[in-house]
Computed example of a mutant assay.
Amino acid sequence: MESLFVPTLVVALAEIGDKTQLLALLLAARFRAPWPIIMGILASTLANHFAAGAVGNWVSRFFSEATLSWVLAASFVAVALWTLIPDTLDEDDTSSLKKSYGPFLTTLIAFFLAEMGDKTQVATVMLAVQYPHFLLVVIGTTLGMLIANVPVVLAGNFAAERLPLALIRRLAAAAFGILALVAIGHALQLSATP
């Protein structure tokens, strides 16, 4: 169950204040149709994180467990630092959103593209390397995305303006830092055994 719960918590924290959360807020304001937007977030996240999880699962086969632990530790430290930097939504990111596509299709495409190379996608790759049940990791990271984004879609500006984003970013960075420490401990343990 750790393969489900840790990814859910880590991604839910990391997503607060992220570019895709800002995108969810923009889509909610533009379309005023929460359920198609939520379904678009769900579908795009499942597709994106399934691909990321598959990459992580595939990559894990080519390296020793000790090497993977060191790479994971370094990656988690990098994502922890990245998490501390507030995201913004560029005008270019939103200019291609057209109301004529409708809320579901617009959300599906926009979220899928916004997640490419985003910290939650990178985290999904790393978590799929770390945990043996990659499907549970994908379900967990998708749940984390929904936990962070559904309230924003449903509540709009009200919730987003009142969240302590700096504190939440620090908590997310701390969660990635803890994962880095666990990976370092595992790497040291593997290096110590003959």
Score class of each variant (00 low, 15 high):
2 E>Q: 10
2 E>P: 00
3 S>G: 12
6 V>I: 15
7 P>D: 01
11 V>Q: 01
12 A>I: 09
13 L>D: 03
14 A>N: 05
16 I>F: 11
17 G>F: 09
18 D>C: 04
21 Q>N: 03
21 Q>A: 00
23 L>N: 10
24 A>T: 05
24 A>W: 08
25 L>C: 12
27 L>I: 14
28 A>Q: 08
29 A>W: 03
30 R>T: 10
32 R>H: 12
34 P>I: 00
35 W>T: 02
36 P>Y: 00
38 I>E: 04
40 G>V: 05
42 L>G: 11
42 L>P: 07
43 A>I: 00
43 A>G: 01
47 A>L: 15
49 H>E: 02
50 F>L: 11
51 A>T: 00
53 G>P: 03
53 G>E: 06
57 N>H: 15
57 N>M: 10
58 W>F: 15
58 W>M: 08
62 F>S: 14
63 F>C: 06
65 E>S: 13
65 E>I: 06
65 E>R: 14
66 A>H: 02
67 T>N: 00
67 T>H: 00
71 V>M: 15
72 L>F: 09
73 A>H: 08
75 S>R: 05
77 V>T: 12
78 A>D: 03
79 V>Y: 04
81 L>F: 14
87 D>M: 13
88 T>A: 14
92 D>K: 12
94 T>C: 07
97 L>A: 03
97 L>I: 12
99 K>D: 05
99 K>A: 08
102 G>Q: 08
104 F>R: 14
105 L>S: 05
105 L>Q: 03
109 I>T: 01
109 I>W: 11
109 I>L: 12
114 A>M: 11
114 A>Y: 03
115 E>L: 12
116 M>P: 01
116 M>H: 04
117 G>F: 07
117 G>E: 09
118 D>Q: 15
121 Q>L: 10
121 Q>P: 00
122 V>T: 13
123 A>R: 10
125 V>I: 07
126 M>A: 13
126 M>V: 10
128 A>S: 13
129 V>D: 06
132 P>R: 12
136 L>M: 13
137 V>F: 05
137 V>T: 10
138 V>K: 04
138 V>F: 09
140 G>K: 12
140 G>R: 08
143 L>Q: 06
143 L>E: 05
145 M>L: 12
146 L>V: 04
151 P>Q: 08
153 V>S: 00
154 L>W: 06
155 A>D: 06
160 A>I: 07
161 E>M: 14
161 E>G: 15
163 L>C: 11
168 I>R: 03
171 L>V: 05
174 A>F: 15
175 A>L: 11
176 F>S: 01
177 G>D: 07
178 I>W: 09
181 L>I: 12
182 V>K: 09
182 V>E: 11
183 A>W: 04
184 I>S: 04
188 L>K: 06
188 L>M: 08
190 L>E: 01
194 P>A: 13
194 P>I: 13
